[in-house]
């Protein structure tokens, strides 16, 4: 995000008025507690917001001032930790990375992400996401380790880096998995997050674990269960393109890539 610095004297007068303006929106929060058998209902809150208020801040306002029992997971508040994924007005997004003002609506509905078990309210269970991520062996595999005193670092060219860089930006927020239509019915599917990570390491020329990983994703609920919907790439907040990673990974398996 670009920050434009202006000296106080240069600050346009008209702008100063609008940025301070406080609006009131209706925040509808999905409340549920499956372990207690409590079905989901919506609780509505009136929340004052400003131009820069994020959806997460609006939810935290509710927790601080109106109802502290709302369950929400968050940590970094800056799109880095991957904790605050949820459905915002029907679309999977990071609450800390979505401003209320960009939604162009006075009613904001927040719900837990699809395709994850709900723990309570907006907090969902990441067990399967993390376990599928781990199954992809998300680390460089090779015999010689870079920590021996004799070995130097493994130098890569900018072109080598370019092959996997965007996929290394994944913060495991799970938004892609929640947008995926296959995930909606196939609970054993690895999912776009895991498959994109498999590609991230396979495409890294320092890595020697390609065959191992290709074997893992070549499962009846693995890479072949992607049907090119592409919704994962639409919702990723970090610019990762899991749909492309899946097709590139398939390239290795169909013999188009070495």
């Amino acid at each position: 995000m670009a920050v434009v610095e202006t000296k106080p004297s240069e600050e346009p007068k008209s702008n100063a008025k609008t940025t301070d303006q406080t609006n009131t929106i209706t925040l509808r929060i999905s409340r549920s507690n499956p372990s207690e058998g409590q079905e989901s209902t919506f609780a509505e809150f009136q929340v004052p917001v400003q131009k820069w208020t994020t959806v997460l801040e609006a939810i935290l306002y509710v927790k601080q001032n109106l109802d502290h029992s709302v369950a929400v997971r968050y940590s970094c508040r800056q799109a880095s930790c991957g904790s605050c994924g949820m459905k915002i007005n029907g679309r999977p997004a990071l609450a800390c990375y979505t401003k209320v003002s960009e939604l162009n609506s006075n009613v904001i509905t927040v719900e837990p992400m699809n395709n994850f078990p709900i723990i309570r309210d907006l907090a969902v269970d990441f067990k399967q996401l993390i376990s599928n991520h781990k199954k992809m062996k998300p680390f460089i595999i090779r015999e010689d380790s870079e920590v021996t005193p004799e070995s130097k670092e493994f130098i890569q060219t900018p072109q080598d880096l370019e092959k996997f860089l965007q996929f290394s930006y994944c913060i495991k927020c799970g938004l892609c998995n929640s947008a995926c239509p296959t995930m909606a019915t196939d609970e054993s599917f690895i999912g776009p997050q895991g498959l994109a990570q498999a590609y991230r390491y396979v495409a890294d020329n320092r890595d020697k674990g390609k065959d191992e990983r290709l074997k893992i994703v070549d499962d009846s609920h693995g890479i072949w269960r992607c049907h090119f919907a592409g919704s994962c790439s639409q919702v990723c907040p970090k610019g990762v393109d899991p749909a492309m990673a899946i097709q590139l990974l398939r390239g290795y398996m169909l013999g188009f890539r070495k």
């Binding site: 019915t185 054993s188 009846s220």
Partner: peptide, 14 residues
Amino acid sequence: RVILLELKQGSTYE
């Protein structure tokens, strides 16, 4: 087969 595998899971079913 693919459609049915995605519809429901379980080793006997599959």
